[in-house]
Amino acid sequence: MIEIRDLSKWYGNFQVLRNINEEIKQGQTVVVCGPSGSGKSTLLRCINGLEPFQEGEIIVDGVSVNDPSTNLYKLRTEIGMVFQRFELYPHMTALQNITLAPMKVRKKSKKEAEAKAMELLQRVGIPEKAHEYPANLSGGQQQRVAIARSLAMEPKIMMFDEPTSALDPEMIKEVLDVMIDLSKGGMTMIVVTHEMGFAREVADEIIFMDEGRIIERGTDISFFKNPKNPRTKDFLDKILL
């Protein structure tokens, strides 16, 4: 579903990604962790073309992201993205946030888009908040609306960029539960997170990044028990306490 080959990216002279190679198969959930500044978010942003890159290749569902002839707008409809700070449109209700892209991009009728949006709000557990503005929602509720907004485009892949880092502890679970549900439902997912409980439960692969490189990868629990790299061990000690 996603193939990343020898991906390197620079900001000016500073190299943020170094020779990343990764393959994500349909239905897999890959968890990406690592210290801040290690290039995790940049990696996600390269996959949906929000950031250009200089070397290597990313192929999403058979389409090369950095091919100049690729229609990035079309590609992005296949890749949902959830942000750390939710990024809901503040001037629209939850329902309007969700229906905007299906109506404008997929040209769905308002009625059809709203029916789908209600179904998604039901799925993330807050149908009663459909007509609320983001300012009246808690962080956890906002993030669930943001997930529903991405799902409304019926993407083949969902990317999460530290989706619970800006949440109060009591709200983390409600968001993770939605994500676990999605993963178990067969969605292809890339999740940047330090929620190791989530990683243990659903990750097919865990990648550890440092200074723009993938320095460790494991399929599951083995990753936590015997990291090969001292940097990984150091980092895991910090987040697992």
């Binding site: 929000l50 449109y89 905007l100 404008k104 991405s150």
Partner: peptide, 27 residues
């Protein structure tokens, strides 16, 4: 307007004119 709100628009497949018209300008 936060850069993230614009990127949220782009990441759902909206183009420049659509993100500008429905997100940037109204906010």
């Amino acid at each position: 307007v936060s850069k993230g709100q614009i990127e949220a628009g782009y990441s759902t497949g909206l183009n420049y004119i659509q993100t500008t018209r429905y997100i940037l300008i109204p906010i």
